[in-house]
Design a protein around this nucleic acid. Structure first.
Lengths: 353, 353
DNA sequence: CTTGTTCTCTGTAACGATAAAGAACATCAT
DNA sequence: ATGATGTTCTTTATCGTTACAGAGAACAAG
């Protein structure tokens, strides 16, 4: 009941293994008659076609590409940005008839890192470049592409990328708030470092030390945050790590911040998802975004447009598409791509009263 | 600059290849001292650890499982049912440290079928059992699990499954409509067969012939539809294939049906997504679900609860979870699981005026 | 001084396939 | 008849790893 191989067929038919192999892969290398007989015999013997793994070993290619996530995969399917990116990425892969493998390598999960080692893929893409999976993949000498620069330094490191200039974008956002006259601003980020207490509040002087103290850890929003902080210098700025990049976390930040006397006049989240959650909290209190508190996000999701949320639009689909193209075509020249972004001002940001 | 292998290291160090292999996989098989030296030397030579593909070939296992979709992958990420299923499936896989491969094998795309042949996986799961990818996988002798029975006959075929009794569920739904006194009912399905003209209207006598004429084609909602038709016998029933399983298609069906004189008193879609789309069309016309037209769906999505939509709840997450467990544990006994469903009556279905 | 056991390490043979080159024979033009 | 050209099939050599069986030394127990 063992598996039938080309060798078995060859032996039974009294032909060489190569002939059997050619019958399946290179019809021009043997007579149509023999080919038919081989295929028939193979079918009769219960041979189900060339083994994928063996073929991959011999050819040195798997035609499969991995996507690494820092979170559980259920997050990858629920975050709008992630889904849009994945959709664009997969469309290109589908067209090229390449397969996609999903890897989940949560920060700090050392065992999960082995998945990168054991992945039979030709390359790997990830949303963030400094995540452990990406680093490991590069150590393995595997082609990598990532779509967010976490720090300036990343730009000089290894690996290809498709990103936007998050720092410049953040500066523009800060400029907008300045022009609108805001003086007391809260900035919502996911986490400053792994194990970060949620909903703590930091002054700009403090948070930088914290991040540096955990250097090498993952802080993917560093460019956005430091851009905002830099651009808002001189104003009353508070940084709040809300724990996760989710609507719920943004909402929780709202409950934390909105019920006190000294409300901020503006709140910027480093993602639209968080900003939308914060707006949920406003709505609950019958406060109006832009009127009572100005709110802004990053990413440019369709949901942000519906909600009238000021944001930085980034070309998500292009990021996904180009990431796939870079992986598929190792010969391609420009392998470090900086895409344009756009500050989109909507009704959620207004001049301070 | 060729790739470094265990053999290279062995040669350079004057030890056997097995020793190198053992240094990486079975530390107890060699002295700690030698092991350290091997690892150091390996690192120095730029060896990046055992090759995944070679290891898979040797061991006969890939620890990877495929999920096959009949649509483009972007659909898999956008349909709520699909996403929920995938999330549950992936959670189990993550816990077991198995990887997931996504395959897209659209109906009729013969080239894409090759992906199933070339997938280096230990098993494959799919939402529907009679899709080409599943059939091909079973021909390859690969373990399969699917989560929807398309026809009664599927139940006797090969492969494991985790399903609900869609036919019985549909009968219950039909019974509800009967009790509520509905006499003119429209049934929305995705498509009856590939290439099906959209928004055609069929009588129950007709559609069965159509489906049979395209026997062997994919019609995954057959059990639901035939249950509904059977349960509504004697009433004025019309079957409408709306083209795709999407909110937009349900909405389009609404524009088709709602602006005529002889409106149906009730509409049942074989999925919540379509039903929700239909309700969008109602709302646009200031018609009230349940009052002007009764509406019902299938699946039991959270969105359905919010919208007050009567539906058949099915345990999506259990389907995903169990599918993964069946793939992971080939020894497990019960491999054909029928989960309970539940008719949930909400305000979208009321007695006919 | 056996005999047995443990600890390290080695050699060989797969796993299932394909690339590359070659052999045998037929065909064809000169 | 000669060489050139094809067609069809075979031989040999990997791809990078691990399973398995054993060999040699050291050490304890009888």
């Amino acid at each position: 009941m063992a598996r039938v191989t080309q060798q078995d067929i060859a032996k039974v038919m009294g032909v060489s293994v190569m002939t059997v192999s050619n019958a399946f892969n290179r019809p021009d290398q043997l007579s149509p008659d023999l080919r038919t007989r081989v295929l028939e015999r193979a079918a009769k013997m219960g041979y189900t076609g060339p083994d994928a793994v063996a073929r991959q070993l011999r050819s040195g290619r798997t035609n499969t590409f991995a996507v690494a996530f820092e979170e559980k995969l259920s997050y990858a399917f629920s975050d709008p940005f992630s889904v849009a990116w994945l959709a664009a990425f997969s469309e290109v892969m589908e067209e090229s008839r390449a397969s996609i493998m999903l890897l989940s390598v949560p920060a700090g999960d050392h065992e999960a890192l082995a998945a990168v080692q054991d992945a039979a893929v030709d390359g790997i893409a990830g949303l963030c470049g400094n995540q452990p999976a990406m680093i490991r993949a590069r150590e393995r000498g595997m082609p990598t592409v990532y779509c967010t620069l976490a720090t300036r330094a990343d730009a000089d490191g290894k690996g290809d990328y498709v990103v936007i200039d998050d720092h410049a974008a953040a500066l523009e956002m800060a400029g907008l708030l300045r022009r609108l006259g805001h003086r007391r601003v809260f900035l919502l980020v996911e986490t400053l470092y792994p194990g970060q207490p949620r909903m703590a509040e930091y002054r700009p002087e403090e948070f930088r030390d914290l991040v540096d103290a955990h250097a090498g850890s993952l802080f993917s929003d560093d460019l956005r945050l430091s851009g905002l902080v830099g651009g808002l210098q001189g104003l009353d700025v508070t940084v709040v790590p809300v724990g996760t990049n989710s609507r719920a976390a943004g909402h929780a930040a709202g409950t934390l911040v909105l019920d006190r006397k000294d409300r901020p006049t503006a709140v910027v989240a480093v993602s639209d998802v968080m900003a939308l959650g914060f707006m949920d909290a406003l709505r609950q209190r019958d406060l109006v975004p832009g009127v009572d508190v100005s709110v802004a996000g990053f990413d440019g999701l369709p949901e942000a447009a519906e909600a009238g949320l000021t944001t930085i639009r980034q070309p998500v689909r292009d990021k996904g598409r180009l990431a796939a193209e870079l992986l598929l075509d190792p010969e391609r020249k420009d392998r470090r791509i900086i895409l344009p972004h756009e500050l989109i001002v909507r009704r959620s940001t207004r001049p301070v009263a």
